[in-house]
């Protein structure tokens, strides 16, 4: 029962966040400062999510095959590989390293 409660409340909160962004008055959006922050926010969040999912597990920092996988993905990005190839290279590299170990 408490799992459904978590699912319900979490879903409601996430939906309201999405809706709030779409519903704020236009004059709020027209401020250069808000515009600037909104452009920088995804950069900060995506950078943090990339780093956290690469080298953290729960509340610990962990160096494992994920780091090599993401590094290989970064090389693919520098070579202008398409999105799906970048993701596949990262997964394949991490899987290969685990097999070799």
């Amino acid at each position: 029962m408490s799992i459904w409660l978590a699912v319900g409340l979490g879903t409601l909160a996430c939906y309201l966040a999405k809706l709030a962004g779409l519903s704020l008055p236009a004059r709020v959006l027209e401020r250069p400062r808000v515009r600037h922050i909104a452009a920088l926010l995804p950069i900060a969040l995506l950078a943090a999510l990339t780093a956290l999912q690469t080298v953290s597990t729960g509340s610990r920092l962990v160096i494992d095959a994920r780091l090599a996988g993401v590094a290989a993905g970064a090389v693919a990005l520098l070579l202008r590989a398409p999105f799906i190839v970048v993701v596949a290279v990262a997964a394949g590299t991490a899987a290969l390293i685990r097999v070799l170990n």
Binding site: R66, G69, V70, G73, A88, A90, A94, L96
Partner: peptide
């Protein structure tokens, strides 16, 4: 290697 695919997708 799916746990490495997730951060690579964010990086992309």
């Amino acid at each position: 290697g799916l746990d490495a695919a997730a951060p690579a997708a964010f990086l992309a």
